[in-house]
């Protein structure tokens, strides 16, 4: 078999479409005519031969939140569902990176918000939806109610040769993963060769992006020490309500936009965090999705994943008429 750069084995082209991110994962070797031998070898080594597919990352819908700054409630989330269903390539799965709902101390109200999230997400035409909690889902009750609706807060699964790991850095109330989950992560990954394509999805960034805005995970370095042993790792996260790319060693970190409101670029901003003001003329500005596809194209020399973000557009809400539609129930 011809020698191939393992780091370019899996490429993810992602589109941030304002509602999240659509990822396209595809083998770099395909166009080089060596796919058969390489995939067979990796299939034997990794347990499953990779094959083309796409998936979408959504984040931070905060169902139940009702502005300011964004008074549109679930409009952006529902728009994202429409956009996903209209994608030319049907994604295999949707990853939701936390803050599905907005928190409340009234358990019954939170139950209704989780039910509403499920009702909207069920409209997405994909076979599989996987979630991790955000602090607004699980921070007040250590994830008790979240588990009743969505199951365990950390887990892993394999899909078409890619190993997906859901990491929980919110249910301990503080921004941390914890020693027990770290031990689980090491054990979970131990069976894979260092070439295995791994996608970690979590809520908070696993590195110090902006600690004084709580954009960090206190034991993120411990997680990264585990992940750094592998060549093809991508970390997808939410929480920061804006897209962001970061590389630590060979590991690429991508944040998705939110589906409710945006935070600004923290670079050069001193002091406390503030939201980006709501723009009535562009109600979905800075919101979006991310797509990833495993589509058989190649991008030699690219890093392990290539991400495309797609800003959420207000198709039926553009222009003055659209704004009037959106504000049929006038805002204060």
């Amino acid at each position: 078999m011809k020698q191939t750069d393992r780091r370019s084995f899996l490429k993810i082209a992602a589109s941030s479409v304002g509602i999240g991110l659509l990822y396209s994962a595809y083998p770099a070797a395909l166009s080089a005519g060596e796919a058969g031998g390489l995939f067979s070898a990796l299939g034997r080594a990794n347990g499953e031969k990779p094959s083309p597919f796409s998936f979408v990352q959504l984040s931070d819908a905060h169902v139940g939140f009702n502005g300011p700054p964004d008074p549109l409630g679930t409009k952006a989330f529902e728009r994202a569902v429409d956009m996903i269903n209209a994608l030319p390539q049907r994604p295999d799965l949707v990853l939701f990176t936390g803050d599905l709902t907005h928190d409340t101390e009234d358990r019954d109200v939170h139950v209704q918000r989780m039910k509403q999230f499920q009702e909207i997400s069920k409209r997405i035409n994909v076979p599989l939806i996987k979630c991790v909690p955000g602090e607004h889902d699980a921070g007040l009750d250590s994830g008790g109610l979240y588990r009743e609706f969505f199951g365990e807060t950390h887990y892993s699964f394999d899909h078409r040769g890619v190993h997906f790991v859901a990491l929980d850095n919110v249910t301990r109330a503080k921004p941390e993963v914890g020693s027990e989950q770290l031990a689980w992560l090491k054990k979970d990954l131990a069976r894979f060769p260092k070439t295995a394509p791994i996608v970690v999805f979590t809520h908070r960034p696993l590195f110090d992006l902006r600690p004084d805005w709580e954009w960090f995970t206190s034991d993120g370095d411990d997680v990264m020490n585990v992940l750094s042993a592998y060549d093809n790792v991508t970390v997808l996260y939410g929480h920061i309500h804006r897209d962001d790319e970061h590389q630590i060693g060979a590991v690429h970190h991508y944040a998705s936009r939110s589906l409710i409101f945006a935070f600004p670029d923290p670079t050069g901003v001193a002091g406390p965090r503030k939201t980006v003001p709501f723009d009535k003329e562009h109600p979905f500005k800075n919101l979006g999705i991310r797509t990833v596809s495993f589509n058989g194209k190649s991008e030699p020399g690219a890093t392990s994943l290539s991400i495309e973000d797609v800003e959420l557009t207000a198709r039926e809400f553009q222009g003055i008429n659209g704004v009037h539609q959106l504000f049929r129930n006038p805002l204060v």
Binding site: H102, E105, K174, D212, E214, R273
Partner: peptide, 13 residues
């Protein structure tokens, strides 16, 4: 800027 980093409710951020 010192923050509360133990999630305490809706306006914790």
């Amino acid at each position: 800027t010192t923050i509360c980093d133990h999630f305490c409710g809706a306006n914790h951020g």
